[in-house]
Simulated scan of single mutants.
Amino acid sequence: MSNDVAILGVGMHPWGKWGHSFVKYGVKAARAALADAGVPWTDVDLIVGGETVRNGYGGYVAGSTFAQALGWNGARVATSYAACATGAQALDTARSRILAGQAEVALVVGADTTPKGFLAPNAGERWDDPDWLRFKLMGMTNPGYFALYARRRMDLFGATSEDFAAVKVKNAKHGLNNPYARYRKEVSVADVVNSAVVSDPLHLLDICATSDGGAAVVIASEEYAKRHGLTDVVRIKAISTVTPTFPNTVIDMPLFSTESTAAVPAAEFTFKESIAQAAYEEAGIGPSDVSVAEVYDLSTALELDWIEDLALCKRGEAESLLRNGDTTIGGRIPVNPSGGLACFGEAVPAQALAQVCELTWQLRGQAEGRQVEGARIGITANQGLFGHGSSVIVAK
């Protein structure tokens, strides 16, 4: 039995700082996805919303919020939240219902309105919340974490600030022709390294912004697609939402065996590697089959980590791929042809869905101005708080 589901339609609301309700962005994206699919609203029997906890009660019940805004049609609803992996988890919820025979056509929507500045925990004291603790007690906003990862690459693999800057240069160029991107302007390595230092060694242009935006995907069972003559479609081959494996529970840091830990063997993969490996295993493919990747470039250095976590090259070789042009459109394995978060910024519940939108356009040959020629298989990667992570594999 096939576990594939068909992607019938995708849609987005442009990223920016618009200052409107997240519902407006989600509805715009949803209507675009429905129009793209050519599916009657009455055929949608499941709506899954990506939760936006910063945006009040409507965010906590996002599935119902979007269903009401689009017009009640009797569909079942569900709501997902997994920080930056929210969109993929919502998509997985919809896919699971379809594969279980509980739905035929599902609309998945994620949207966000973000505050100015760094993302921070909600107000109030939560002494059992590690994220609240690290922010309030240590002042460790996300760029502080990004900088630790960047420094590790410099120490282990000889990465330089110019390498990190080159990631931004590449993604900025990719995003020039993306009508949904917030930032559509070329930058130089000098522009990046001369921008303000935010958290050494990362500069302002190494770090993604916070943005408003929305994305939506319409998926359906293979049977529904066939009945309606929709056979030449992009399909979801796998969605991974695995958690860390003990004892490798500290984000993705390798646990090196010592005599004191010999009784507790290290996990085979680090957390971020395991996210991708689970997706590859479910899809029945390997990294060499991948044509294009959309990864979670919260910082320029993190893109280099993800290239290796997805096993698109060996550990420590991402800088070489970048310098050789292999990760640029036209190269061996283009990464973030959309422009990535470097050009979009974070709209948290929407970004994993936005990656699926981009890969769908790429595999259809519709990514005008940024097309990866011959793209057949695409993979995404995201990581959220508290052991959330996701990878989606799509194929044509």
Results as ranks from 00 to 15, higher is better:
1 M>N: 05
2 S>F: 07
6 A>L: 14
19 G>E: 02
19 G>S: 13
20 H>N: 02
21 S>T: 08
22 F>I: 12
25 Y>C: 00
26 G>I: 00
28 K>I: 05
43 D>N: 08
45 D>Y: 00
46 L>Q: 01
53 V>E: 03
61 V>W: 03
63 G>D: 02
69 A>V: 09
76 R>L: 14
77 V>H: 03
83 A>L: 07
85 A>L: 12
88 A>S: 03
95 R>M: 15
98 I>C: 14
102 Q>H: 10
102 Q>C: 14
104 E>G: 10
108 V>L: 00
112 D>W: 01
113 T>I: 10
115 P>D: 02
118 F>L: 14
141 T>Q: 14
144 G>N: 09
145 Y>S: 00
148 L>G: 11
155 D>Y: 13
156 L>D: 10
159 A>M: 04
173 K>P: 02
173 K>W: 04
174 H>F: 12
188 S>T: 13
189 V>F: 14
189 V>P: 04
192 V>N: 05
193 V>S: 08
193 V>T: 05
196 A>D: 11
197 V>G: 09
205 L>T: 04
206 D>H: 14
207 I>N: 15
211 S>Q: 07
213 G>V: 03
215 A>N: 01
215 A>S: 06
220 A>F: 09
223 E>W: 12
229 G>A: 06
231 T>V: 04
232 D>H: 12
233 V>G: 11
235 R>M: 11
237 K>W: 04
238 A>C: 11
242 V>D: 00
242 V>Y: 01
244 P>D: 04
248 N>F: 06
252 D>Q: 10
256 F>L: 13
256 F>H: 14
257 S>E: 06
257 S>M: 10
258 T>K: 04
258 T>A: 01
277 Q>E: 02
282 E>R: 02
283 A>P: 11
289 D>I: 02
290 V>N: 04
290 V>Q: 06
292 V>M: 14
298 L>F: 03
298 L>V: 12
301 A>E: 06
304 L>D: 15
309 D>L: 07
309 D>T: 12
311 A>F: 07
322 L>G: 08
324 N>D: 09
331 G>R: 03
335 V>F: 09
337 P>E: 05
340 G>C: 12
344 F>Y: 03
358 E>I: 00
370 R>H: 15
374 G>Y: 07
379 I>R: 12
379 I>V: 01
384 G>Y: 01
384 G>I: 15
387 G>Q: 11
387 G>L: 10
387 G>R: 10
393 I>S: 11
